[in-house]
Design a protein around this nucleic acid. Structure first.
Lengths: 340, 340
DNA sequence: TGGACGTGTGGAAGCGCTTCCATCCGGTCT
DNA sequence: AGACCGGATGGAAGCGCTTCCACACGTCCA
């Protein structure tokens, strides 16, 4: 790992004519160092090209100065869904403010959360941010049990009271979307829902059904034009096709994510339906929605904000492990474009 | 970083009734351990839930068991260009075989390579894989100078003889693409090129020009219908628009990446040109090319293979630092679809 | 039967850093 | 002038692990 002649703090101290203790204090910007000593050390550091050995430092301080971002999704989704791009970008930016390194932990297909959990327990990181959490991964409970500081982007479906999290109010957002379709006069409204094992999928479905119920369009739970996707474009297309097959007279469609909505638009086009005239469509997320044809009316899910808030919650935990952070819940807003 | 009561190797050894040295050997699967001792240690590890402290291990072994992937691009490109997704997925898979952790190092906008270089020099990782390297980052030279084992995905533009790399033959690929357009009968062929400060941009341009020259369509270097983009969809659209404005009679277009080609198709549609009848288009990469309208004829750039080959080159270097690996150069192939 | 050899084991030395604690020093207060 | 104080400093312990080395103990062969 180190180049052969990597200088150590000892050599810096010797060159600067101070003890290793003082050199360490100078390097770490401690106050209890005279200007004279500090300058000597700084000069020595420069002339030797000294860089502290992170393993040694970490061993002594019991900190690693790095934070894991855990994404229990296959890599291809992470690198194709703009939601993750936004999220990781924001997390990275906030962590960089404090010189913390981001370590991306992806679930690899076919493996349980064992490997990830082992990594987190192994003391490789000071804390974790969990992004796309599913019911079955039990991450909130595991992490709370571990005592590892953590924060969730999106309310955890289990153990939400034991960890910090930031989310948008997905129930309210879905209600907004559905109400818009109702106002437009749609009466046979379908829903391409997110995964049933994620809070975001459940909440958007719940908000949608609540709005329908208020409008007197009750339906039996579990019945009606609802098909689940997994937040990929392909799943949105397939779900929409199933919906059209079962309910050919659909006049409105609420899709639980813009990426799925993009797939749905393709299915609608393939079925010869015009949007919004035959079927009005509302998406969710406002990620790439303006690049669809037609541009998508959607609910804003401020992924960057959310990630930043979650990261700051984590930072607060790192600063003061005793602090019990309040969850953050942001209000949704609707953006009207051409599709509804 | 550690939970308060994290068990140490000492406690494992005590519980197993052996010395710490033996416990260490057992944990690391050394051969020089009796079955009796090994089983006792394994039992102790299980009952205590022992996980080795990576900092301590790394300090003693001078290894970190992690590898950096360096991408000198802004995060938003990394998370939107499918090329990176493929690449990172493949690297991650190969590293996982050896239980190496991937650490993603993105250039943050507005900062020089200082931070990245500091990290690499700091001994945080055992080696590095560099993905989208530009002339000005001088990464090949820096890394070779550092003595840090590394491998490049895509031939480095400077210092290619000092580091390991894997690439496809981009000159040959561009030639293939251009020849196809020529065979089709195109005579006024434009090119949306990649960045001029990357080997891949230069090579694809060179192959294109070589094919034109062979067909007797020489042109002054630097002149003619060539516009550069930066491998984003938006830049492809803009470059194509510039091309159409300057050369309204274009009948063929070779675009140096599929993502840019997608943008180019949009520009062509906006200009009312039909593809392939008015303008035949060939892309490069075969990433999402089949999802374009019309589906894109393109040159296959096997991003996953490339990344895997580069990663294996790195692993070989890690196993035997003295080994001087041969560069890998894969042949390109053409995929015909509707656009040309 | 004695030496050579191989195998499993433990003691102990470090890896490079931080930080507690004792010490020292110059200045201030009484 | 002496006690006192606070800031700067160095010595040394220790973070948890690996690994060199020495040693004990059989085994095997001459």
């Amino acid at each position: 790992m180190d180049a052969p002649g990597t200088p150590t703090l000892d050599e810096v101290a010797r060159l600067a004519g101070v003890s290793r203790a003082t050199a360490s204090r100078a390097v770490n910007g401690s106050s209890r160092v005279s200007d004279r000593a500090r300058e000597a050390v700084e000069a020595a550091v420069r002339s030797l090209g000294y860089v502290a050995n992170p393993a040694a430092r970490s061993l002594a301080t019991r900190r690693t100065d790095s934070v894991a971002v855990v994404v229990p999704e296959p890599d291809d989704r992470v690198f194709s869904d703009p939601f993750f791009g936004r999220t990781l970008t924001a997390v990275n930016r906030v962590l960089a403010e404090r010189d913390l390194q981001l370590v991306l932990l992806l679930a690899r297909p076919g493996e349980e959360e064992g490997r990830t959990l082992r990594y987190l327990r192994g003391g490789h990181v000071d804390g974790a941010i969990v992004v796309s959490h599913h019911r079955s991964d039990h991450l909130a409970e595991h992490l709370a049990g571990l005592g590892l500081p953590c924060a969730f982007v999106g309310r955890p479906i289990l153990g939400a009271d034991r960890v910090a999290w930031a989310d948008t109010d997905n129930v309210a957002g879905a209600r907004l979307a559905t109400e818009l379709l109702l106002e437009r006069g749609c009466r046979r409204i379908g829903h391409v829902a997110g995964p049933g094992d994620m809070a975001v999928g459940q909440d958007r479905l719940a908000g949608h059904l609540a709005a329908l119920a208020e409008a007197g369009l009750d339906r039996d739970p579990g019945a009606g034009p609802v098909e689940h996707g997994d937040f990929t474009e392909a799943s949105g297309e397939a779900a929409c096709a199933r919906l059209l097959a079962a309910y050919p007279d659909l006049d409105g469609l609420f899709v639980a994510s813009d990426l799925m909505a993009r797939g749905a638009l393709r299915a609608l086009a393939a079925a010869g339906r015009s949007v919004p005239d035959d079927v009005a469509v509302v998406g969710y997320d406002d990620l790439g929605a303006d690049h669809c044809t037609p541009p998508l009316t959607t609910v804003v899910n401020p992924a960057g904000d959310l990630a930043e808030r979650a990261t700051r919650l984590l930072l607060a935990r790192l600063d003061d492990p005793a602090a019990v952070p309040e969850p953050v819940l942001l209000p949704p807003t609707l953006v009207r474009r051409a599709s509804a």
